[in-house]
């Protein structure tokens, strides 16, 4: 089906499309290549030669990064040095769990609000909007006391609970997605005696699979790159993002030198890059929707 579409797509369109995309690609790849080249430069070389090729190509930055990108954590048991591999592991758990929680909660609530016309739904919808506009100022102290009071401070599970919030733009995106699905699907199912729960899990959820996947991917990446919250609430298990943050503000000028910073950033971004390359088709999908006919 799609092959036929491409053949009939106008040539003008293709040319314009390709040129715009290429232009943007070039504008993005040049600084990216610069970043990569810089990561292979010696520090002094960079000071006097910011944009040329390295006088000496060196892997030192990468080798040293593994040593230096280690974080020292002080917890109740004493001092602990956490290495890159462990931080990587922490990041994966953190991003997966938080991403999933942050995707699931709005999915559940927006479904209820979009499809079930109780008065409460309207209230929730407006509440979400107001909540998005209300800035959270000076709430850190109360957050800490609540989290400690519940006994979930410094645990991964605690972080997942904190992230199980339906507030935010994800709610609106799911809402739009669910709104555009006709209720006829559900009617058919209800008539056959299926429970609401079955309708949700077996009919509706699959229909928003790509949206769910897209939001999850975006959340995963956000949480992978986030360091402010884990810094405060999960101090014993630092993530690579926190390692990067320590790197950025390190007092040692060898670490804050630009070649080293580029190295660290590239190292930290590489896993996400791989994940994205693997899953990009699933997310920006080419799934067809044939629900009503089937």
């Amino acid at each position: 089906m799609s092959k036929g579409g491409v053949q009939k797509t106008s040539k003008v369109f293709l040319i314009i499309g390709m040129s715009m995309l290429l232009l943007y690609t070039v504008s993005l790849l040049i600084p990216t290549f610069w970043a990569i080249i810089t990561s292979f430069k010696e520090r002094l070389d960079f000071i006097t030669n910011k944009f040329g090729l390295p006088k000496v190509w060196t892997f030192d930055n990468y080798i040293n990064a593994f040593d230096l990108l280690q974080v020292t954590v002080y917890d109740s048991l004493g001092r602990k040095d956490v290495y890159l591999s462990r931080m990587f592991f922490n990041s994966v758990i953190y991003a997966l769990g938080c991403g999933f929680a942050h995707t699931l909660a709005p999915c559940l609530v927006s479904y209820a609000v979009a499809k079930y016309k109780f008065k409460f739904s309207g209230f929730i919808y407006n509440f979400v909007i107001v909540a998005m506009l209300l800035p959270s100022v000076g709430t850190l102290a109360s957050e800490i006391s609540i989290v400690k009071g519940l006994g979930i401070y410094d645990t991964f599970f605690g972080m997942f609970i904190m992230r199980f919030s339906f507030l935010g733009s994800n709610f609106l995106i799911f809402y739009a997605a669910f709104k555009s699905i006709s209720w006829e699907y559900a009617e058919a199912g209800l008539m056959d005696g299926a429970s609401h729960f079955k309708i949700f899990t077996q009919i509706m959820l699959p229909l928003v699979k790509t949206t769910f996947g897209a939001i999850f991917l975006l959340s995963f990446i956000t949480y992978w790159n986030e360091y402010t919250t884990p810094m405060v609430f999960l101090p014993s298990n630092p993530t690579v993002a926190y390692g990067l943050y320590c790197f950025r503000f390190s007092p040692k000028s060898a670490i804050t030198a630009v070649p080293m910073q580029m190295t660290a950033c590239l190292l930290v971004s590489f896993p996400i890059f791989v994940v994205f390359v693997i899953f990009k088709n699933k997310i920006m999908g080419n799934l067809t929707m044939g629900g009503l006919k089937g």
Partner: peptide, 29 residues
């Protein structure tokens, strides 16, 4: 290729973690 890549990364992480005591080193006083 992608599957191999993903697997290698996962394995690499697991290995380097076990090599350095689960990726952490505790200073004991």
């Amino acid at each position: 290729l992608k599957k191999v890549l993903a697997l290698t990364m996962a394995l690499g992480t697991a290995l380097s973690m076990t090599a350095c005591g689960l990726g952490e080193h505790r200073e004991n006083y």
